[in-house]
C-alpha cells in the first residue's frame, strides 16, 4: 500500500474549498487594513497554528484508511483550522460592524472541532484495542514492524527466533514448537497461479490463527512453512494442538478466483524444548516435519 492520500481526495478538496470560501467571503464584504494596523506578531502566532492544524489533518489522511475514526479526527482538525484561518484573515481584513458570521466561524468552529477530535481520539483508542486483540496471536508482547512478513500478516523467521529465545530464557516450563508445511505447494502454486497461491497462504494463516490459544504465536517460517510457538506447553497438549491444526487445515476448502475449491493437506512436526537453544529447537521440529512427510504416501 503506497499512499493513503488518494483515498481521501474528496475530503481534502472539501477542506480546501471551505478555506477558499471563507477567504472569498471575507474579501467580498470586508476591506483590506492599512499596513500600519497589521499586528505581525498575532499573524505569526495564529498563522502558525492554522498551518500546523492543516498539517496534522494531512498526516491523518496520509496514514489512515477511510472510515469513521478517520472522518472524526480529520473533521475535528479541519474545524480547528477554519477557526484559526478566520482569525488570521481578521488581521488583514476589516469587516463591517453589522457582519456577525465571522464570529461564528471563529468561535463556533473551535469547540465543534475540539468535540469531534475528542470523539475521534476516543474511538481511535477503542479501534487500537480491537487491532491489538487481532494481532495478539501474531505478535505476542513485542511489536517490531521490521519483522513483518511481506506476504502474510504474520511475522517472519527472524522474529520467531527472537521470541523463541526469549521464551526459552524466561521460563522453566517446556516450550513446544510446531512446524506446519503444505503438501506439494509448489504444484498448487503452478496450478492456481501466483496471485491465488499467495492468497492461499494468507487465508491459511488466518485459519491457523483461529485455532490457537491466546498465548500462542504463529509466524511464517519461509515459503509454505509456518511455525507455532506454544509457551509453557507439555508434549501431550502440544500434540493435541498440532492435531487440531492439521484437522483444521485438512478441512480448509480454499476457493480460487474462479470459485473452484482447492483442497490442501499439511504435515506437522513437533519439538518440545529440553534445554535447547532456539536454533536447535527449530531444527528438531523441522526434522520431525520431514519424517512425517516422507512417511506419508505422495499426493501428486
Amino acid at each position: 500500500m503506497g499512499n493513503m492520500t488518494a483515498l481521501h481526495r474528496w475530503s481534502i478538496a472539501a477542506i480546501v474549498a471551505t478555506g477558499l470560501c471563507i477567504l472569498i467571503l471575507n474579501l467580498a464584504v470586508g476591506a483590506l487594513k492599512p499596513a500600519a494596523d497589521i499586528a505581525w506578531l498575532d499573524i505569526a502566532g495564529e498563522g502558525g497554528a492554522a498551518l500546523l492544524s492543516l498539517m496534522w489533518t494531512f498526516f491523518i489522511f496520509n496514514s489512515r484508511p477511510a472510515g469513521w475514526v478517520t472522518r472524526l479526527l480529520s473533521g475535528g482538525l479541519a474545524f480547528i483550522f477554519f477557526s484559526y484561518w478566520q482569525d488570521v484573515l481578521d488581521e488583514f481584513i476589516q469587516l463591517p460592524a453589522h457582519v456577525h458570521w465571522d464570529h461564528w466561524v471563529e468561535s463556533g468552529s473551535m469547540p465543534l472541532g475540539m468535540i469531534l477530535l475528542t470523539l475521534g481520539i476516543y474511538h481511535w483508542h477503542r479501534e487500537q484495542r480491537a487491532i491489538n486483540r487481532q494481532l495478539l496471536k501474531r505478535e505476542r508482547i513485542f511489536r517490531e514492524h521490521r519483522s513483518f512478513d511481506a506476504l502474510t500478516p504474520l511475522s517472519d523467521a527472524r522474529y520467531l527466533r527472537e521470541q523463541l529465545a526469549l521464551e526459552l530464557q524466561h521460563t522453566q516450563q517446556p516450550v513446544s514448537l510446531i512446524m506446519i508445511d503444505l503438501d506439494c505447494f509448489d504444484h498448487s502454486r503452478r496450478l492456481l497461479g501466483s496471485a491465488d497461491g499467495d492468497r492461499l497462504l494468507r487465508e491459511l494463516s488466518e485459519l491457523l490463527v483461529l485455532n490457537l490459544r491466546q498465548k500462542d504465536l504463529l509466524c511464517r517460517y519461509a515459503g509454505d512453512r509456518f511455525a507455532v510457538v506454544l509457551p509453557a506447553t507439555e508434549r501431550l497438549i502440544a500434540e493435541n494442538l498440532g492435531r487440531e491444526l492439521k484437522q483444521a487445515a485438512d478441512h480448509f476448502a480454499f476457493k480460487t478466483r474462479r470459485g473452484e475449491t482447492h483442497r490442501v493437506t499439511v504435515h506437522t512436526g513437533l519439538a518440545v524444548s529440553h534445554h535447547d537453544s532456539a536454533d536447535s529447537l527449530i531444527e528438531r521440529a523441522n526434522r520431525c516435519l520431514l519424517q512425517s512427510r516422507s512417511g506419508q504416501p505422495r499426493v501428486a
Binding site: A222, G223, R225, N286
Partner: peptide, 13 residues
C-alpha cells in the same frame, strides 16, 4: 546467510 530457512524450505535440506 542469515536467512537459512529460505534455502531449507525452497530448495531442500
Amino acid at each position: 546467510p542469515s536467512y537459512p530457512e529460505q534455502y531449507q524450505v525452497h530448495l531442500g535440506d
